[in-house]
Design a protein around this nucleic acid. Structure first.
Lengths: 161, 161
DNA sequence: TATTGTTATACTCTATAACTATA
DNA sequence: TATAGTTATAGAGTATAACAATA
């Protein structure tokens, strides 16, 4: 130890001006939660972005790849590789959209649905752990508040049947 | 237009199961805010991570590079390049720590302090815009809630004088 | 002429390992 | 032996541009 002061090691929460910024806290909370979820999903060979794709397809909106990339804020070229992998893993099917043959309609397979449920349980557990520090009433308030803040910022999706 | 259904374009908020997850909302809110801030800061040749470093050094804790990297969750090797750039820009100084000559003590210069203030105003504006959708009382509640959730997760920092 | 999906490519970011100087 | 800072390098992730098929 090479400390010259009596209180060398301190929690960062005190004199660190960023922690008084809601923006920084939001950022930090989001990235911590993401990392925790990524770690939990890795145990089942799953990744957060696969989980997002599976969850988006569960809504059964007949989404194309570009719909997905807009929805999940991922580059369309990234989405190609993503869907490639998931198709190879047997979790997703590409079908041509008969009313617009440029587009696919992506569908969950049974395996995909099973993987989604398993992953969902892991992500649930991570969120529960993270939110356990505050009472249930505050957890619900937080969710509602975030919903309001993001209400105007969801991408528009073209979903055709 | 190639739609076959009467309601082709829809907001994603409705049948998209992820938006009911606090974790997804937190993640999304954090990344939206980060992108907005990055865009605003780019206009003054600033970046969010530079701003974070400047803000961390404002606290005057005699932080070393590794303290900073732990605090901001950036790799120590990334921090080297970061501080290099900021030193070249005249915003930060490296001084050797006399009580441990392996470590630096990083200090803000006057230019760094000015850049911090300018950037702080831009980030303030971005946060204000983002949070404007809810009343002031809810904004404060959100900040307090996030603070509680993150309370146990700040890294320990060795700050020597 | 515009759009979906695709490929190739470049660019950025991050992570790993090895080195030096100090402890 | 361990740590702070550094460098070089590899890897992952992302963005850009061009192309074929379809609208």
């Amino acid at each position: 130890m090479t400390q010259a002061t009596p209180t060398p090691t301190q929690s960062a929460g005190f004199g660190f001006p960023l922690v008084r910024r809601t923006g920084y806290l939001l950022n930090k909370a989001g990235s911590i939660l993401m990392e925790d979820a990524e770690r939990a999903l890795a145990e089942q060979g799953m990744r957060l972005r696969y989980f997002y794709v599976l969850a988006a397809l569960e809504s059964d909106l007949s989404l194309s790849q570009q719909d997905l990339s807009r929805l999940l804020h991922l580059d369309p070229t990234t989405m190609v590789a993503l869907v490639d992998e998931m198709e190879r893993a047997g979790q997703v099917e590409r079908r041509r959209n008969p009313s617009d043959r440029r587009r696919y309609i992506l569908r969950l397979t049974d395996d995909g649905r099973a993987a989604l449920e398993r992953a969902g349980r892991a992500v649930d557990a991570v969120e529960r752990d993270f939110l356990a520090a505050v009472p249930a009433e505050d957890r619900e308030r937080l969710r509602a508040l975030l919903g309001e803040l993001l209400a105007g910022r969801w991408p528009r999706v073209i979903a055709c049947e």
